[in-house]
Design a protein around this nucleic acid. Sequence first.
DNA 1: ATATAAAAGGAGTTAAAACTCTTTTTATTG
DNA 2: CAATAAAAAGAGTTTTAACTCCTTTTATAT
Lengths: 143, 143
Amino acid sequence: MFSKTFGYALRATAYVAIHGKNGKKVGLQEISQSLDIPHHFLGKIMQDMVRHGLLDSIKGPSGGFFANERTMDTPLVEILKITDGSLVFDQCALNIKRCNAANPCPLHHEFAQCRNGMLHSLAEKNIGQMAAEVEAGESYLAR
Amino acid sequence: MFSKTFGYALRATAYVAIHGKNGKKVGLQEISQSLDIPHHFLGKIMQDMVRHGLLDSIKGPSGGFFANERTMDTPLVEILKITDGSLVFDQCALNIKRCNAANPCPLHHEFAQCRNGMLHSLAEKNIGQMAAEVEAGESYLAR
DNA sequence: ATATAAAAGGAGTTAAAACTCTTTTTATTG
DNA sequence: CAATAAAAAGAGTTTTAACTCCTTTTATAT
């Protein structure tokens, strides 16, 4: 349903939201080790997050990634759009072209319900809430 | 969420369920053209369906695929197991190892609900019902 | 200023899924 | 029994996502 890249992006962004606030910076090394994500691949993904303004970064010694004013308010679905594009939102479970409510494939309604529920969750929850959950020990970013 | 192969397998099996009963046989050519699925690739997939006993086939001139006593009663989830393996049933949306209700990722509950709903539908509905829907014009296998 | 450590960027490789081509087997029909 | 038409099988190729490596830029600290 979602790419691995999305999972990496989401977890890493949440990690920075937790550990990279109040002037603290987090390095790629730390993130990739803590979350068990390939170092260089994560580099690319983080670039993208910064480019889209979801996080900030600074180069040089003692540089790294850190949360900015947008980070906490970013709905998870924003990250999905960046990593997986907007095609996710309307492609058919059976890959039929022009499958829609009027011309449905045999799984259209079931799948629409399933996916829309999921997308709703991703639109409602933001990085700040997700980070808070993790900090409260209610859910985990790794292992 | 599901592979393209699953979509091809499901649609083709339903097609045979509709057009390959009462002694009638359906050829690969016809299926792949009607459903716009690559001919040879579909060949492989159909082999698998036959191997698993979901359909029967016969070689030679006027050979082809046809429904057997199991075809109609096969729940859709059977086909999913064949094409995508059983991993689909418990892998985490964020690809975290050992994500479960006790140790959930931040999307575990939302995703479990979404996926379980979908799997429930696939377990409840069988090929016969799906074929009937299509024959009644309630849903479509192509276009 | 220079060395250094970090992210950014470019360009490549690998792995898996999707798809193709060719040959073999087998049933049918003339 | 020969020709044919279909599925089965084997072995490739292509495409895409996932991942790696190397170089460049830039901020920091000495």
